[in-house]
């Protein structure tokens, strides 16, 4: 019997001549919270869309529990990708009231938890009679969060769930997410640009850059081996000799680099060189940001 996993193999997605996703291989295990981070246009939403069969891949396969996900009811019953709501337009879904939108979701989603949805509407202080088009950006995020959490899908994807939410509501979202995770053991994949704030929540982090997965690792282990080294250029070069360096910054005779230590590698702090631990946002900038000369 297959272990419960969502697996994508060699996914390529091409729009025109551009490869938005370039041979992506990914395994998502059950019972983890993944952070999917990448710069704008890196392919995060496209990847989540393909994983949830909302978009077809140009090449490659996505399987859940060994079954293809594409047009497969049995597999799709376990997956939910709560997309960002589009405020543009005065007809259709934007013209639905919050209540109607959640009602439509409850009909299509097989494991919908109406009690949880009601509870969250109350906690977020959402006016159910309000039309989606009239909601603020933060309130639209709340609706997508409610959809995602109430779906009770084993694999739940959220695209920028905290966009537009104030700090209080963001904190509340992370708390509810962790409670739900603890209760159900569902898998969540959260794409976000507010990295530092969410890093405590992510068990694993997936970094996507220009359509390729450049890193998939336990968040704490990644942070434990990330170092920023700065000081005199010659000293920094000597210290990092033989190591792969990222995000090289040069300022006159000084230099700053980021390294990811491999098992067994160590750095010795000297008087002229500073070695610092990094947070997830700094690691992300080092790996996906532009080099600064």
């Amino acid at each position: 019997m297959n272990e419960e996993k969502l697996i994508c193999r060699d996914i390529v997605k091409t729009y025109g001549k551009k490869d938005v996703l370039d041979h992506v291989n990914l395994e998502l295990e059950k019972g983890k919270i993944y952070g999917l981070i990448g710069r704008n246009g890196a392919g995060k939403t496209t990847l989540l869309s393909i994983l949830s069969a909302q978009n077809p891949a140009t090449r490659g396969t996505v399987t859940y529990n060994g079954m293809p996900v594409w047009e497969n009811r049995e597999a799709l019953d376990h997956i939910c990708f709560s997309r960002e709501l589009n405020p543009i337009g005065s007809q259709g879904q934007s013209n639905l009231k919050v209540k109607e939108y959640l009602q439509a979701a409850s009909i299509v989603m097989p494991n919908w938890d109406n009690e949880l949805a009601k509870h969250l509407v109350e906690k977020f202080e959402l006016d159910e009679k309000k039309k989606i088009v009239k909601l603020s950006k933060g309130m639209m995020s709340m609706v997508t969060i409610i959809c995602a959490l109430a779906s009770k899908a084993d694999y739940t994807f959220l695209d920028e769930p905290v966009a537009g939410l104030d700090v209080v509501m963001r904190e509340y979202f992370y708390r509810v997410l962790l409670d739900e995770f603890a209760d159900s053991g569902r898998t969540f994949v959260i794409s976000t640009h507010i990295i530092e704030e969410a890093s405590d929540v992510f068990e694993e982090v997936i970094m996507l850059d220009k359509g390729k997965i450049i890193l998939k690792e336990n968040t704490q282990e990644l942070l434990d081996r990330s170092r920023h080294i700065s000081g005199k250029a010659e000293e920094v070069d000597a210290m990092t000799a033989g190591m792969k360096t990222f995000h090289v910054e040069k300022m006159g005779r000084s230099k700053g680099v980021t390294v990811l230590l491999e098992p067994g590698q160590e750095l010795k702090q000297t008087a002229d060189v500073s070695v610092q631990q990094m947070n997830l946002q700094q690691v992300f900038v080092a790996l996906c940001g532009k080099e600064v000369e």
Binding site: E71, Q91, G92, V108, M109, A153
Partner: peptide, 20 residues
Amino acid sequence: ANNANYFLPQAISFGSTRKE
């Protein structure tokens, strides 16, 4: 037109298959 622009994408994003 509404079906194509809004309700079909919404149904698929909620997890309906294209055939359904």
